[in-house]
Design a protein around this nucleic acid. Structure first.
Length: 346
RNA sequence: GCAUGGAUGGCGGAGUGGUCAAACGCACCAGACUGUAAAUCUGGCGGCUUUAUGCCUACGGGGGUUCGAGUCCCUCUCCAUGCA
């Protein structure tokens, strides 16, 4: 079953399934927009919290949004900052984040200043960014999480989803709004959350609260509980997952959209994700055995640099800390990730 | 030739009588990373042993003092600086 949907956005038509390279701060680290086009990226993901801190809404407004600023003319999806509540706060329990029913108070990680995000505020900032697909502010339960805490997070996520819908109705609504299913690793919560969200008129539904440290088996179960409850005709987005095989499995289970920091972050850490078109592998290019491996980085690449430069050369660039290493590795991993579904969807 | 100060692991550099196979860097080897506080973090890094609170060899060479020396003494070699 080759599930495929079309998603219409202000900046073009998207065809699922697809992977979204992550441009948290308005750039896919080490790449240009032209690189992204060459790689065949159709959409990028950016981040409300980070862009709110820098460059800030005011500048984004005068730059004609993130599209105008970074010169990407395709669709942009923005995460709401919900994940930063988790990664800056809940995950470390460092007092940077305080949750209430109304919203979340942050101490930002740069200057320590206080900020208050509500679901409405998160959408307001996303409007300054001008993203095509906007995520509701949610609460990502940590792993592991008691049922009691997961329910509290879920109830807030649901209430915030409702408020987000209201906000969209009252304001310029020329964008797609996605809800996020939470509920930890608890089947009843996940199912309840999905059912209640589906009753609200969202343009798409994401599954959040996975890839937070749980074994893949757990995430797989969440997919099995939630996906059947989501509407067939609306896009389903699995947030933050994952390894190539995990994404393909999730696609088979009915997921349409993916994002993950793995290809870009790990590229900068010298891990290369390889494929021969059917199977996937990982190599640490820093390993000594590549010091004399003069085979090219990827003979099947559509990028000239990847079928020219050798592995031994790339390893050398990493060792001497040449910035070109980060760029080549990032190009390589994204190419692998962006061709993940090219055989399934035709 | 005299005087003074040095000589420590691949390199730099701690250490002045025991808890030193030797801090900390660097280099090297390996691992981690899943809605990016991440060009980051973790581990290893004399030899042997599967492991170890294990054994062996080690702080320029040789000799000595001491229960015990990288640390104290004598001597040799080399290096640096100063004076002849």
């Amino acid at each position: 079953m080759n599930r495929s949907l079309s998603i219409t956005t202000k900046h073009g038509l998207l065809k699922t399934p697809f992977f979204m390279p992550i441009a948290t701060q308005g750039a896919v680290k080490s790449l240009t927009v032209a690189d992204l086009k060459r790689l065949g990226a159709t959409i990028v993901l950016s981040n409300t919290y980070h862009l709110y801190l820098r460059p800030g809404e005011k500048l984004l407004n005068s730059a004609k949004g993130l599209h105008g600023f970074m010169k990407w003319d395709g669709p942009i999806l923005t995460d709401s900052g919900g994940y930063q509540v988790f990664s800056l706060g809940a995950k470390n329990n460092n007092g940077l984040v305080k949750l209430t029913d109304d919203g979340v108070e942050f101490k930002d990680h740069l200057r320590g200043g206080k900020h208050f995000f509500t679901p409405e505020r998160a959408l307001e900032i996303q409007s300054a960014i001008g993203s095509d697909i906007r995520m509701v502010l949610d609460i990502c339960s940590e792993y592991p999480c008691t049922e009691e805490k997961a329910r509290e997070d879920m109830e807030r996520t649901l209430a915030w989803a409702e408020r987000s819908i209201e906000y969209k109705k009252k304001n310029d609504g020329d964008y797609l709004l996605f809800a996020i299913v939470q509920g930890g690793m608890h089947q009843s919560l996940r199912e309840e959350c999905a059912r209640r969200l589906v009753e609200m008129p969202f343009d798409g539904y994401a599954i959040g609260g996975v890839s937070v440290g749980e074994p893949w088996e757990e995430a797989r179960k969440v997919l099995d509980w939630v996906v059947p409850l989501l509407p067939e005709n609306k896009p389903r987005y699995l947030m933050g997952v994952g390894k190539p095989e995990q994404m393909q499995e999730a696609y088979r289970k009915g997921i349409d959209m993916f994002d993950c920091v793995i290809p870009t972050r790990e590229a900068r850490h010298a891990k290369l994700y390889t494929t021969d078109g059917t199977t996937y592998g990982e190599i640490n290019i820093l390993n000594e055995k590549y010091s004399t491996d003069f085979s090219v980085i990827n003979p099947n690449s559509k990028l000239e640099e990847l079928q020219t430069y050798t592995k031994a050369y790339l390893r050398h660039l990493f060792i001497v800390k040449e910035p070109l290493a980060l760029r080549l590795a990032t190009l390589h991993n994204l190419e692998t990730y962006l061709t993940l579904f090219s055989s399934n969807s035709s």
